Simulated assay, not measured.
Amino acid sequence: MSALLTRPLALSQGDPAGIGPDIALTAWVNRRKTGLPPFLFIGDPNVLEARARVLNLEVVLREAAPSEACGIFAEALPVLPIAIGVDVEPGKPHVATAKATIGAIEKAVDLSLRGDTLAVVTNPIAKSVLYEAGFGFPGHTEFLADLAARATGKTVTPVMMLAGPKLRAIPVTIHIPLKDVPGALTAELLEETCRIAAHDLKVRFGITRPRLAVSGLNPHAGESGAMGREEVDIIEPAIQRLRAEGIDAIGPLPADTMFHDDARKRYDVAICMYHDQALIPAKALGFDDSVNVTLGLPFIRTSPDHGTAFGIAGKGIASDASLVAALKLAAELARTAGSAN
């Protein structure tokens, strides 16, 4: 796979006290075995050097520009340095690292928007650490959308999707309390989410006619209004309008029967009404090899589907499987999108 790419992927460091450095190093060490596409690590090389010593990994680091990364990836891990300025201890996050963590994301987005890198791949962040430093976004997804909007001058609606070998799932509402979901769920939001999903599945995933299965919000999809009106008043009319536009959407379907083996054969993506309704089945069916993909952006973005895992950082037991899957999927989406242009 790597031989087919002339530009690298941009990999942001994530929270340096978490497992981001661990899995980036391990992924590079195993690059030949996994057929890993070349990436440019954006972050502090001192953190990588220190973590490699802790993990007893032999890694050659080399400072590199994006144009140099593919050429040296086979022999050295290319790094675009962003200094943190403080010592980082595995498993002990500190607010002093937040500026560099945010800066790495911003740089990765900038490089990809300029075409210097093929896609953005983000290592996990600790939102509580960033909030302490004044970070004003619920998470990665919303921050990336803001960066894209500022760079392009256009409104950007980000759509979060968990993509695994057995299931693709999208939550319509994302990082909000469960009690706020009914108020946040609108026909306009559902329709826009489905339109973006259908577009990106076609353009970036190469699915000619994406099939969308839309869940209900309430148990048993509301039982025709007996257990809630959201299905009748919001979801059903939205699906009818989408179908009139030519989008292959069905529902609202009871969420408790959407995810078994036979049901999943009937659709390409599950559109769910809230965060856990989508992420619980997605992670249950593919925790180690599912990938977080943000649709609706003017660049490709993927990420591992796990968090910072501070408790195991620096212990040599963190799996790089989801990061490897995220890097491979980013390269695949870039290749598909490129061939469609």
Rank of each mutant, 00 (worst) to 15 (best):
I42D: 11
L327C: 11
R229C: 06
A83D: 13
Q240S: 06
K127N: 06
A163P: 02
S112R: 13
A52G: 09
R51K: 11
P171Q: 07
I105G: 08
T26Y: 05
F143P: 08
D200I: 00
T173C: 10
G43R: 14
D146W: 11
S303V: 03
D146K: 08
N56L: 06
V291E: 03
I300E: 10
T6Q: 12
G164H: 01
A213H: 03
G18K: 02
E63K: 11
A313V: 04
P165I: 00
L40S: 14
L57H: 11
G35R: 11
T152E: 11
A65N: 12
N341C: 13
K179W: 15
H260I: 04
A24H: 05
P165M: 03
K154W: 12
G286Y: 00
A226W: 11
L189D: 04
S12V: 09
D305N: 02
T155L: 14
F205L: 04
P177N: 13
E58R: 13
G228T: 13
V59F: 09
D200W: 00
Y267E: 01
D248E: 06
I312P: 02
E223H: 07
A330S: 12
L113D: 10
P171S: 08
E245F: 05
K315I: 03
V60Q: 14
R31Y: 05
R32L: 10
V79D: 04
V214Y: 01
L9I: 15
V172T: 06
